[in-house]
């Protein structure tokens, strides 16, 4: 296992049962992601993209196979340990932003600190700094409903970065945005990648996917070359 691999999936499968019907969503996935990678995962709906992202983000466990995160086998870790890794090592960006509507932009960014790291003066400064870098210095105390889609997604990116993660998982980050905002968000992601952040992104959009360094296509639970 080389040191600069962040993610190694070995023969990962995922099987769901709905009623008595068996759904094989992932059929033996092998995936290695190096530090500094920017991988776009494409494929038709129902091809297993979301499931794969859930497993990568430690939100779900594979049915079989092995998952090494930063060289450590994680499929057997306890829920609490997984939560800690999600908190400190992984950042999430979602299609629907998932900002908490009753909290301000700044407070939304601080949310992960609640579950690790703690809210300190330095961290608040850092959060403000992040938002500034993402061009939101004027909107620190706005609530999500008062922000545009692009602005909301930028708040969500800041939130994902607050604990300095090693891996950023983005699920259709531009899916709810117009093309101008989409470009802005993609610029930011590319910039972050250039600074060394590893990114895995799921998308439908060919144009968006082209911005990544690698494109992988997932169909019927398997990568096709």
């Amino acid at each position: 296992m080389e040191k600069n691999f962040i993610v190694n999936l070995i023969d990962v499968t995922k099987v769901y049962f709905i009623g008595k019907v068996k759904y094989e969503v992932l059929k033996g996935i092998n995936l290695d992601i190096e530090k500094g990678d920017f991988v776009a995962i494409m494929g038709p709906s129902g091809g297993g993209k979301s499931t794969l992202l859930n497993i990568l983000g430690l939100l779900d466990r594979p049915t079989s196979g092995k998952y090494f995160f930063e060289g450590k086998e994680v499929s057997k870790l306890s829920a609490g340990e997984l939560a800690r890794i999600r908190n400190s090592r992984i950042g999430f960006v979602f299609q629907a932003f998932h900002l908490v509507p009753w909290a301000s932009a700044l407070e939304n960014v601080l949310m992960p600190l609640l579950y690790g790291g703690g809210i300190t003066k330095e961290k608040i400064e850092y959060a403000k700094n992040l938002l500034e870098r993402l061009g939101l210095s004027a909107y620190l105390h706005f609530r999500p409903p008062e922000l545009s889609g692009g602005q909301q997604q930028r708040v969500a990116i800041a939130r994902a970065l607050i604990n300095n993660p090693i891996l950023l998982l983005a699920d259709e980050p531009t899916g709810n945005l117009d093309s101008k905002s989409s470009n802005e968000v993609m610029d930011i992601l590319q910039e972050l990648n250039n600074q060394g952040l590893t990114i895995v992104m799921v998308t439908h959009d060919q144009e968006i996917a082209k911005r990544a360094k690698k494109i992988k296509i997932l169909k019927d639970g398997q990568f096709i070359e």
Binding site: G80, A83, A96, H98, L114, Y115
Partner: peptide
């Protein structure tokens, strides 16, 4: 639900 899901995703454990 989504807020709770988010809290879980950003590192809250179920006990919290």
């Amino acid at each position: 639900r989504k807020e709770i899901g988010l809290r879980l995703a950003i590192g809250a454990d179920r006990l919290k």
